[in-house]
């Protein structure tokens, strides 16, 4: 429980945050808890009866709520999104099953793009600080979120992690989600895109078996292509499956260990970063005029 904002964090631990409650006064998002109330109507069907009831006894009544179960997460995600936008940041949510190579892909990317961009990483795992340590070994700032039993990051945790991390304006923010092809699909973190990483050792049928994730992603990175000669993995079939659940998905093939194909990924990042920058600039010009 986060005492200032009253947010339930369960057994989630954010490095440098959980035991420092002073941080909670500087939320990147405002916990004013008045998000998404607009749909609640009090259809007090017991109204006529209530008047005749003895004072002090409240009769049962039906409240029509019509609220999305994820509305709280979505409100936090919207706060994160506007924070990222305000600061010209490109935030990406990296999702995959465990061990597809997210951290390997990241450490190589951070090294290669160090000179070009300011970068920061939020690492999500159920346990251990291992991945954040691997990231910090590249010299890039990282904060680890341990979700405990939780199988995905949510927008609220990410908001707190951003406070701790304080990424520079115009930076790339990579959020490595908990390895899980199911749950992270439903939880928007405020990112520009989900990037789903699928390694060739997992089989080409994964886009069809976990369609929600591949449907939610803007880019699929097919990783570990250096292993293709040793496997029976049908790349074309895999791509066809991914396009079946998401016709607009971009697809890149890389090997995070040999570096093959990584330039295309960097170009994808550059283009997206560029478009965010020009959007931010346009906005500034509009407000200045």
């Amino acid at each position: 429980m986060c005492t200032t904002c009253g947010c339930a964090e369960g057994d989630t631990q954010i490095e440098g945050h959980a035991h420092d409650h002073s941080l909670e006064h500087h939320h990147a998002h405002s916990h004013n808890h008045d998000h998404s109330h607009e749909h609640s109507h009090n259809h007090d069907h017991g109204h006529a009866l209530m008047a005749t009831h003895a004072a002090g006894i409240s009769p049962a009544r039906i409240l029509r709520i019509e609220q999305d179960i994820l509305s709280k997460n979505n409100a936090y995600a919207a706060d994160n999104k506007s924070y990222f936008k305000q600061h010209g940041m490109l935030a990406l949510n990296l999702v995959s099953s465990p061990g597809s190579g997210k951290t390997t892909l990241l450490t190589r990317t951070l090294d290669d793009l160090k000179a070009e961009f300011s970068q920061a990483v939020i690492e999500g795992d159920q346990q251990t600080l291992l991945d954040a340590e691997r990231i910090r070994a590249t010299g890039v700032n990282a904060v680890q979120i341990n979700t405990g039993k939780g199988c995905h990051l949510d927008a609220h945790m990410v908001g707190h992690a951003v406070e701790t991390l304080k990424p520079e304006d115009n930076s790339l923010l990579f959020i490595e989600n908990v390895g899980n092809l199911v749950c992270p699909a439903s939880f928007d973190l405020g990112e520009a895109h989900k990037v789903v990483i699928l390694s060739v050792t997992e089989g080409e049928d994964k886009p069809l078996k976990y369609p929600d994730m591949f449907n939610a992603a803007g880019l699929m990175i097919l990783n570990k292509t250096d292993l293709l000669p040793y496997l029976q993995f049908d790349v074309d079939q895999c791509i066809a499956y991914a396009q079946r659940v998401n016709p607009g998905i971009a697809i890149l093939q890389v090997s995070a260990t040999t570096g093959e194909g990584m330039q295309a990924w960097y170009n994808w990042l550059r283009e997206l970063h560029q478009s965010i920058q020009s959007n931010t600039q346009n906005q500034t010009t509009i407000t200045n005029n």
Partner: peptide, 20 residues
């Protein structure tokens, strides 16, 4: 997944309880 969805449900209900 369903655990966190239920947490979301309870949070929304508690919020409603304050208001309503």
């Amino acid at each position: 997944h369903e655990m966190s969805l239920c947490e979301g449900v309870i949070q929304l209900i508690e919020q409603q309880a304050d208001e309503q």
